Simulated assay, not measured.
Amino acid sequence: MSNQFSVPTLYFDGQFIDVLWDNHDNVMKWFEKYFAWNIQRQEGWKVDPRCLQGRMTNTNWGTWLVSYITNSRLPHHFAERGTVESNIRLCFRVSELQKQHSKLMEDGIRVSPIYDGPGRTRYFDFWATTEGIRITLQEDLSLRNDGLLPSWVRVGVSNLQDSIEWYKQYMGMSLVRDEINHGYVLMKLRLNHQEEDSLWIVEQLSDEAYKGKVDGQVQPICWIKNREDFFKYHQYLLDCGIETSEVGGFLIRGMVSFHFYDLDGNRFNISSM
């Protein structure tokens, strides 16, 4: 493909959490209990016509719980369980990090120690429900209530400079703040349905961190508004030698999706209608 191809605008559109079919309602109840999330929309929708059954629950901050039953592995929509953790972290901000950490730990929920991280703030990871769905909480002392607010997505990479250029070229990200001397940079993409941008922390992995392809349960989604651009972008990534899944979903009319992997095996989901 010509080098003159212009990557279409990618809009961050929230996240899928891949949930086992029989655990779907329990996962929603977990988030209701611990973070006061609520059901905003429920659909018996299938991610692909090959699914025998499908369920989607829309909850807070563009989060969709997705479950389906199928007789075959879908090429574009799946998650692995019981393997290494993804180096993509979905972050939410809270005002009282220690309080949240203690509450979860007292209830027997797996949590990491509180640690210093990018953005000169503190974090901890927790593993929600019996499925061990990892999400990250971030301290924000400017918040005036006990609520949970979205933050940035953290992506761990083995070579910061190479990854910055890769994200610029293949995803259209732009640099917001260069903190390479502190082991990270802040980048951005447009945010779907809103005027502001989504923020992405690209951070240097430690030498001992796992580096390789991971298909985690928590999957950030980027949206392409023009359906024709979606298919052109898919072909462009293939032509550039980037590992990219087949397009799945409703190819004639309806939602279509694929995913691809960056230099370190971090997975990015792309959708359109």
Score class of each variant (00 low, 15 high):
Glu131Asp: 08
Gly132Lys: 00
Arg134Thr: 00
Thr136Cys: 06
Gln138Tyr: 03
Gln138Thr: 07
Gln138Ser: 05
Glu139Thr: 11
Glu139Val: 08
Asp140Ala: 07
Leu141Tyr: 10
Leu141Asp: 09
Leu141Met: 04
Ser142Leu: 11
Ser142Met: 08
Leu143His: 12
Leu143Cys: 10
Arg144Leu: 15
Arg144Ile: 15
Asn145Gly: 15
Asp146Lys: 13
Asp146Thr: 15
Asp146Asn: 15
Asp146Glu: 15
Asp146Ile: 12
Gly147Tyr: 04
Gly147Leu: 09
Gly147Gln: 07
Gly147His: 10
Leu148Phe: 09
Leu149Phe: 13
Trp152Glu: 08
Trp152Gly: 05
Arg154Ser: 09
Arg154Cys: 03
Arg154Trp: 00
Gly156Tyr: 07
Val157Phe: 03
Leu160Ile: 07
Gln161Trp: 05
Gln161Tyr: 04
Asp162Lys: 15
Asp162Gln: 15
Ser163His: 05
Ser163Leu: 10
Ser163Lys: 01
Glu165His: 07
Trp166Pro: 11
Tyr167Met: 05
Tyr167Gly: 03
Tyr170Ala: 08
Met171Gly: 02
Met171Pro: 01
Met173Asp: 07
Ser174Gln: 01
Val176Asn: 07
Val176Thr: 08
Arg177Asp: 09
Asp178Ser: 13
Glu179His: 14
Ile180Cys: 14
Asn181Pro: 14
Asn181Met: 12
Val185Gly: 00
Leu186Phe: 13
Met187Leu: 09
Lys188Met: 07
Lys188Gln: 09
Leu189Lys: 03
Arg190Asn: 15
Asn192Gly: 02
Gln194Asn: 05
Glu196Gln: 10
Glu196Ile: 02
Glu196Pro: 04
Asp197Cys: 10
Ser198Met: 10
Leu199Val: 01
Trp200Ser: 01
Ile201Cys: 14
Ile201Leu: 12
Val202Gln: 03
Glu203Gln: 13
Glu203Tyr: 15
Gln204Ala: 15
Leu205Pro: 04
